[in-house]
Simulated assay, not measured.
Amino acid sequence: MKRRCTYKKSQAVLQQRKSYMWAQMNGTGPPVRMFSCSPTCSAAQAAVLYAGIKPGAVLLSDGYEPYNEIARTNRLVHLGCWTPATLPD
């Protein structure tokens, strides 16, 4: 799952640019949550984050087509996020 986030390039410069937050969690054992910020939401970034993930794990996305290949390659259950469906036009 990804969300838009912002980060500062440095403490001295207050410029901000768009980036994406990736949220991941484990499925067994003590709960672990990992948040990664990336300047892109590309399939290449998703491939890096999901490399080596256990088959059968869940990939929740906004329906971006390239993520289907990530799900197929890693044998993931690909779920669609309902947030866009609930937003007004």
Rank of each mutant, 00 (worst) to 15 (best):
L76Y: 00
A57Y: 03
Y20N: 08
V48S: 08
R72M: 08
A12E: 14
M1V: 09
W22H: 10
V77E: 13
Q11K: 14
A85T: 03
I53V: 15
K9C: 11
K9I: 12
M34W: 02
Q24I: 06
G63E: 04
K8C: 11
I70K: 03
A12I: 02
L87Q: 14
P39V: 09
Q16Y: 09
T6H: 14
V77F: 04
K9Q: 15
E65T: 09
W22R: 03
K8R: 15
D62S: 08
Y20F: 14
N74D: 05
I53R: 09
T86K: 10
N74G: 04
L79E: 14
R4L: 06
Y50F: 13
Y64N: 06
E69V: 06
L59G: 03
A23V: 14
R72I: 06
T40I: 02
Q24K: 05
P30S: 10
L76H: 00
A51R: 13
H78G: 05
C37S: 15
I70P: 01
V48R: 13
M25K: 07
P55D: 10
L60I: 12
S10K: 08
A12T: 10
Y67S: 04
Y50T: 11
V13A: 09
R3I: 03
L87K: 14
P31S: 08
K2L: 10
Q45H: 07
V77I: 13
K2S: 14
S42Q: 05
R33F: 07
A12H: 09
A71P: 02
I70G: 04
A51I: 00
A12R: 10
N68S: 12
V77R: 09
T83A: 15
P55C: 10
N68V: 04
D89V: 04
T6K: 15
N68M: 07
Y50I: 00
P31I: 02
L59I: 02
P84N: 05
L60T: 05
T86F: 07
A71Y: 03
S42L: 05
H78M: 01
R72S: 14
P66S: 10
Q45V: 15
C81E: 04
A12P: 00
Q11T: 11
C41K: 14
Q11D: 14
L59S: 07
S42K: 05
W22E: 06
R3L: 12
V48W: 01
A46W: 00
Y67A: 04
K54H: 12
C41N: 12
R75G: 01
A43G: 13
M1I: 08
Q16K: 15
A43H: 00
E65F: 00
D62L: 07
A46S: 06
A43F: 01
T73K: 14
A43R: 09
Q45C: 13
T28R: 07
S61W: 01
A71W: 00
S36A: 10
E69Y: 03
P88A: 12
G29P: 01
S61K: 04
Y7V: 13
A46Y: 02
L49E: 07
A47E: 15
V58Y: 05
Y50R: 02
R72H: 10
A44H: 06
V13E: 11
A44V: 08
M1N: 09
T73G: 09
I53P: 00
A57N: 08
